[in-house]
């Protein structure tokens, strides 16, 4: 048996979550192959090949994979799926777009956002916004799943990865081979048009050590920025937001923390003016230390906070910012 991992990348950098997927894949104790689909993504190929535990990197290179569509990714995976009994990826907007399509084409179920692998066909995942954990067993011949990245440690990299820029040097050390594969013809009924990337010099929300999230009580987009930014800069923290704050236009959609947004598990999570709806706490309850600042002493966020401060955030945040050297 073999395992196939769908790698996410931006053409230059492999997503750090791929290394977490590699760790998850070790459960089956079988050869792990990583599929890198892109256009001239040579740097990504090398990064994938330098991950310990990766036997083979499969390279699909085609112009139409520069901004890959779910349709093209799914057709590509199906075209090489023979012999793979497990197909997986880290859970993200990229994988959850493409993999259900693969599942339908292979006529198998998909298991989304797996928290724990119990046995070779048995998984734990959460339902009802994280309020219930369910253990399920797949009866399909092919196991198709996405894994909850932060629940799996990142697989280590080959020793020379940092300094080596040649394929040979980094791949010989860990012994992964690089194989090219034919890419099926581009799907004609869809095309990529444009994208808007959120510009930020802050760390990525999903991997930041400290996350500061703001709720609707920040009042406006301006005060969201004015109040939280200086503290985030001092702490080197990423900014997050509740759905209410995003819906109100105070913060961009891609920093929404919760059931339908990003799930984070930083060392320190500071919830500012966040009430603590279950949909939000789903996205942050695995944080190591949680600090909540809210004027309402009965806000449910205090039930999941290690340290709660009942006070006006407009007084507390500037004071906290000033107090931190």
């Amino acid at each position: 048996m073999k395992i196939l991992i769908l790698a996410e990348h931006d053409g230059l950098q492999l997503s750090p979550s791929v290394r977490q997927a590699v760790t998850a894949a070790q459960f089956w104790n079988s050869p792990v192959h990583v599929l890198v689909a892109g256009h001239n993504a040579d740097a990504v190929i090398q990064q994938a090949a330098s991950i310990h535990g990766v036997e083979r990197v499969i390279h699909a290179n085609a112009a139409h994979l520069a901004h890959p569509l779910a349709e093209d990714i799914a057709n590509l995976i199906v075209s090489i799926s023979e012999g793979y009994e497990v197909i997986l990826a880290a859970h993200s907007s990229f994988s959850k777009n493409a993999l259900p399509r693969v599942a339908a084409l292979l006529d198998v179920a998909m298991i989304s956002d797996v928290l724990e692998i119990k046995a070779e066909n048995t998984y734990v995942r959460s339902i009802y916004a994280g309020n219930v954990l369910t253990t399920i067993q797949s009866t399909d011949a092919v196991q198709l799943l996405t894994v909850h990245g932060s629940n799996f440690a990142a697989a280590s990299l080959g020793a020379n990865n940092e300094i080596s820029s040649t394929v040979i040097a980094s791949t010989e050390i860990v012994g992964s081979e690089i194989v090219s594969t034919e890419t099926p013809a581009a799907f004609k009924k869809a095309s990529w048009k444009s994208e808007v990337r959120s510009q930020s010099d802050r760390p990525a929300l999903g991997s930041a050590k400290i996350v500061i999230s703001g709720g609707r009580s920040l009042g406006s987009a301006e005060s969201f920025e004015e109040v939280l930014s200086p503290l985030a800069s001092k702490l080197g923290a990423a900014l997050g937001a509740t759905r209410a704050a995003v819906d109100a236009g105070f913060a961009p959609n891609d920093i929404q923390v919760g059931q339908t947004g990003v799930v984070v598990a930083p060392e320190l999570y500071i919830a500012v003016g966040v009430s603590g709806a279950i949909q939000h706490t789903y996205g942050m309850k695995d944080s190591k230390i949680v600090v909540a600042i809210n004027q309402d002493p009965d806000a449910p966020i205090f039930q999941v906070a290690d340290y709660g401060l009942v006070a006006d955030l407009f007084d507390v945040i500037p004071a906290l910012t000033a107090a931190i050297r």
């Binding site: 198998v108 298991i111 954990l133 009866t139 949680v290 290690d306 340290y307 401060l309 507390v316 906290l320």
Partner: peptide, 29 residues
């Protein structure tokens, strides 16, 4: 295709303590 084996409650995060001031919060952290 997926057989339900069991459901369980996730581990509940314990509520911590309330602090009285910014200074106390920083000292705790």
């Amino acid at each position: 295709r997926l057989k339900l084996i069991q459901v369980a409650e996730p581990a509940v995060r314990k509520a911590g303590i309330k602090v009285g001031s910014v200074e106390e919060l920083i000292n705790k952290l």
